[in-house]
Design a protein around this nucleic acid. Structure first.
Lengths: 140, 140
DNA sequence: TATTGTTATACTCTATAACTATA
DNA sequence: TATAGTTATAGAGTATAACAATA
C-alpha cells in the first residue's frame, strides 16, 4: 500500500507539472485555457447548447455566457437560435475556431510526442498499458 | 509515428481530465490552486524568498506578493526579514499551512490510489515503468 | 411555476508600469 | 544604477443573486 501511495504521489506531481506546461501552449496561441477547453467541447464533443456547455465544462451558466461572448468577439464561434426552444441558444464553432483548436492541439501533441518517440518498444508498451489501466481515473 | 501521436493525444486528454478533477480537492478544502501550489513550494522545495517563489511558480512578483498576503491572512504563512539583505523577504510556512498541505495532498493521493490499488501486479509495473519513462516531460 | 440565458455585483488571479527602499 | 518588493491599475475568469423571456 505504501508503494501504491508513492505511485499515486508521482502521478499527481506528473499531472501537475505537465499540465502547467501544456497551458503555456494555449497562452502562446493567444487563447486562455478556459476558452480553449470550451472550444474543444464544441469541436469534438458535439455540445453546443449554452447550458449543456456550462455543465460539460463544470462552470456556471453566467461564466459560460461570458466565455462564449469573448469567443464570439474573437470570431471563434457563432450563435444561433434554438428552433425547438425559444429560450435556448446554439453555439457553433467557426472555421477559424477549428483551425485554432487544430493548431494548439497539434502543438501540445508534438510537445508530448517528442518524448514518446524516443522510447524503446517495451517502454512504449508500458505507457500504453498504463493509459489503458488509468482510463477510469478520467471519468468524473 | 501515427501511433506515437495517438498515445500523446491520449496522455494529453488524461492529464487535462485528471488535473481538473484534482483541482476540485483544493476547492473542497477552501484553498485556490494557485495558493496551494505556492504552499507546496514553501513546504517541500525549500523556496522561501519572495522573488524565488514567484520564479518557481512561474508567476510575476506582484502576483506572488498578493498570494503571500492572502496566505498570511489565512494563517498559512509567516513573513520574516532577510537578515542578509534588507530588501529581501523570507516567507515561512506555519504549522497550519503544513497541516493543510498534508490534508489536501493526502486526499489527492487517496483519490488516485483508489484506482491504482486494484491493478494487478503486471499492470502496476507498467504504470511505474511509464512514470519512469515520462519523467523528463516534467522538466521545464 | 420551472427553465434558459443574461445582467449585476463581487472576489480571485494575473500582468505591466510606477514607486520605495536597499544594495 | 540595479535589484527586491510593493502599490496602482486593468483585464480575465469565476460564482451567486436577481432578472427577462419562454416553456
Amino acid at each position: 500500500m505504501a508503494r501504491v501511495r508513492g505511485d499515486a504521489d508521482r502521478l499527481y506531481l506528473f499531472i501537475r507539472h505537465v499540465g502547467r506546461r501544456l497551458q503555456g501552449v494555449d497562452a502562446a496561441n493567444g487563447i486562455s485555457p478556459a476558452r480553449f477547453s470550451a472550444l474543444v467541447s464544441l469541436y469534438f464533443h458535439g455540445v453546443n447548447n449554452m447550458g449543456e456547455l456550462a455543465a460539460h465544462e463544470h462552470v456556471s451558466r453566467p461564466a459560460m455566457t461570458r466565455l462564449v461572448r469573448a469567443m464570439e468577439d474573437a470570431g471563434l464561434t457563432r450563435r444561433n437560435k434554438d428552433t425547438t426552444d425559444g429560450r435556448g441558444v446554439r453555439v457553433e464553432i467557426t472555421k477559424k475556431g477549428r483551425d485554432l483548436v487544430d493548431r494548439v492541439r497539434r502543438e501540445k501533441i508534438e510537445l508530448i510526442s517528442r518524448h514518446l518517440v524516443d522510447l524503446d518498444r517495451k517502454t512504449a508498451q508500458a505507457v500504453r498499458a498504463a493509459l489503458d489501466a488509468l482510463e477510469p481515473l478520467q471519468r468524473f
